[in-house]
């Protein structure tokens, strides 16, 4: 379910987004950057924000929704405080990243793409993070954990709760 966002409570954020939209050159395909900016401001792309972008850029809502749902980086749901990303690039996969992911889902009792009830963690299976020397790799927020042993996961998670 999409969580609605209160437009009145977030006027500052909408104004910031509007300033960004107005600063862009409309002839050069601005939708992608605008969605990136909106996600940076709001943390995700609620339907109200998409409608707002549609109004201000005159890009049809259908097109915006299409783009927002096409790319995996855009999220229509709010994320937990920390996103736990398990790298599922090939180098990590051959070094048993799947076991890391399994253990993580078991520990947090959620599946990939979901958020824990207390809104602390979301799990994401990410594409190659590019530090293949540290495989298998897991990221919590900005912190990188390399050569992860599934057994260590409960201890690692403790630091964030």
């Amino acid at each position: 379910m999409q969580k609605a966002i209160d437009i009145k409570e977030n006027t500052d954020k909408f104004e910031e987004l509007l300033r960004y939209i107005e600063s862009q050159d409309k002839s050069q395909g601005i939708l992608m950057q605008t969605l990136h900016k909106a996600q940076e401001i709001f943390g995700y792309l609620p339907i109200e924000v998409q409608k707002f972008i549609s109004e201000k850029t005159k890009i049809p809502m259908a097109e915006i929704y299409g783009v927002a749902t096409f790319y995996t980086q855009f999220s229509l749901e709010p994320k937990g405080q920390y996103t736990v990303g398990v790298c599922m690039g090939t180098a990590c996969y051959v070094k048993s990243a799947q076991l890391v992911l399994d253990r993580l889902q078991q520990e947090l009792k959620i599946k990939v793409g979901e958020t824990t009830e207390d809104n602390v963690f979301s799990i994401q299976a990410t594409r190659c993070l590019g530090c293949c020397g540290l495989a298998p790799v897991m990221m919590i927020g900005e912190d990188v954990y390399g050569k992860v042993d599934p057994k260590d996961i409960p201890n690692i998670l403790k630091n964030y709760r």
């Binding site: 395909g29 601005i30 939708l31 992608m32 950057q33 969605l35 990136h36 890009i59 097109e63 299409g66 783009v67 096409f70 790319y71 995996t72 980086q73 855009f74 594409r127």
Partner: peptide, 25 residues
């Protein structure tokens, strides 16, 4: 600079162009 948004297919040149234009890649 234009940022992608996590779609492997955008490495294909015509998809990449669509993405820069602000469409589905």
């Amino acid at each position: 600079i234009r940022l992608g948004a996590g779609a492997f297919v955008c490495g294909e040149e015509t998809a990449l162009i669509a993405s820069i234009e602000g469409q589905r890649g």
